[in-house]
Design a protein around this nucleic acid. Structure first.
Lengths: 253, 253
DNA sequence: TAACTTAGTGTCATGTCAACACTTAGTCTG
DNA sequence: CAGACTAAGTGTTGACATGACACTAAGTTA
């Protein structure tokens, strides 16, 4: 509430889980630490929040330094502050996650061509600090959000096929989807449209290309079906997850 | 990531939006500030994160100091860190929200009987700092979570009627529900059971009392209907929309 | 005992979801 | 140039969930 004299001045960082889809896998960007706590280990890109900088700005800066990309989806995830998460100093991490379309990927080694690489989600070495936990939280959030928002489009390049899009859902959700049902569902939303062009690659029928009508917005889909009906009158009168406490289920009491 | 010498040591606080249902209204607890930035204004209860204290602990402490209650639902919400949100110093607020059952309400003026009071959500004076924004974020989260989790039970006393429970949904969601459909829906979940006792108050038929079978857990309901498909699912935790950028819709690019 | 008040209960139409297989349009190869 | 190969593309149906809708039951009070 109020900064007292006995203040705990902590270092605050913004760390970003940068996701992309590459080669049919969900990957994220890691940086090999050059400095000492955990030197040599892979860690999430991030930096300290500067004095006159918004948290979002710090996250965006970290994102751009590593990937060079602009204008990608970025959202605050959760704040990690266990005192033991960082040795010696008290460092609190405001974690973000970002989605980068595969097309923008080449920019990877933009800044310093130091040790930066993409890793598939399931083959992560042992990450620095509590970054493994942050990654887990981010993956869950991403997967959940695919269901009830249009966030998946944020992975897509300017033009893509329906199979491409379906693959994004399959890779993130880690389950197979039915082709016909998927197409019906995604087209019924009316959020993508044919570009008119075709992609012909392998030795098979070419695929229609689509674009996202509104690529800069992420909307909520599932319009809150909620606790059964509401209005209507009859006879003129009727009328993360992430609670504090153990891992993710029951709050401490 | 790493604390540098040019470090930004910020003050970090945990502020809590404490919700309860009282008199058919969704209310939250505010404290009148005694100290100077914004002295005299109403603000969310909160305190600085101490050096060896987890963020969750700070939030719980703030909760207990003001309400005296133990064992209520507490969940991290979002972190607010605009440099301008606090004059002079850089103060970053990790916001939490808590749900307190109406039964525990009397404990209100437990600690210091200073200025502490419950306010209906729609009649808030002008709050200190960016606390109005925090409250808005918390309300949205709460309302969303009612839909896809069993969080509503956290408002309930040990025994309650179905009408009581329905009222919680109606008050938070701000819409009327159909009695028959609500009962069907809530009972079909199998998460509450009759205690066998009745409550008789007004001059009308008495109501059966119910209890929550598993009052300490908050579960996800809506089992991910997702993008059409075959097998079952798991589920994450989650929140709702809040991409970096303009208010709440489109991420900055 | 009549009036009042909230508790409590079931059906049906509609929409949504998931399961399911074959045809089309290309390329490649023999 | 015909046959094999590959991924694209396309509808129907049954099961289930949702939401609209009205009257009876069991107390209390006048």
């Amino acid at each position: 509430m109020k900064p007292q004299d006995t203040a705990t001045a902590a270092v605050v960082t913004a760390d970003v889980v940068i996701f992309t889809i590459q080669g049919g896998e969900l990957k994220l960007l890691l940086v090999r630490r050059a400095d000492d706590p955990c030197r040599g280990q892979w860690a999430l890109p991030g930096d300290q929040v500067r004095m006159d900088e918004d948290l979002d700005q710090t996250a965006m800066r970290a994102l751009q330094v590593q990937t060079g990309v602009h204008g990608v989806y970025l959202e605050q995830l959760y704040t990690f502050g266990r005192p033991s998460r960082y040795p010696i100093a008290r460092v609190i991490a405001v974690a973000y996650y970002a989605l980068v379309p595969s097309e923008k990927l080449q920019l990877q080694a933009a800044g310093n061509a130091e040790a930066v690489d993409w890793f598939a989600l399931n083959q992560l070495s042992n990450l620095a600090f509590d970054h493994a936990e942050i990654v887990t939280t981010a993956s869950r959030r991403l997967s959940a959000k695919l269901d009830y928002s249009t966030i998946a489009f944020q992975f897509m390049p300017a033009e893509f096929t329906l199979s491409d899009l379906q693959q994004v859902y399959e890779v993130v959700r880690q389950e197979q989807l039915d082709k016909r049902n998927f197409r019906k569902w995604i087209l019924a939303q009316g959020r993508i449209e044919k570009t008119g062009r075709m992609r012909r690659n392998g030795s098979h029928r070419p695929a229609s290309l689509f674009r996202v009508k509104n690529p800069h917005s992420v909307e909520i889909i599932r319009q809150g079906r909620s606790a059964s009906a509401n209005n209507g009158v009859e006879h003129g009168q009727e009328t993360r997850m992430r609670p504090v406490g153990q891992a993710a289920a029951a709050p401490v009491r």
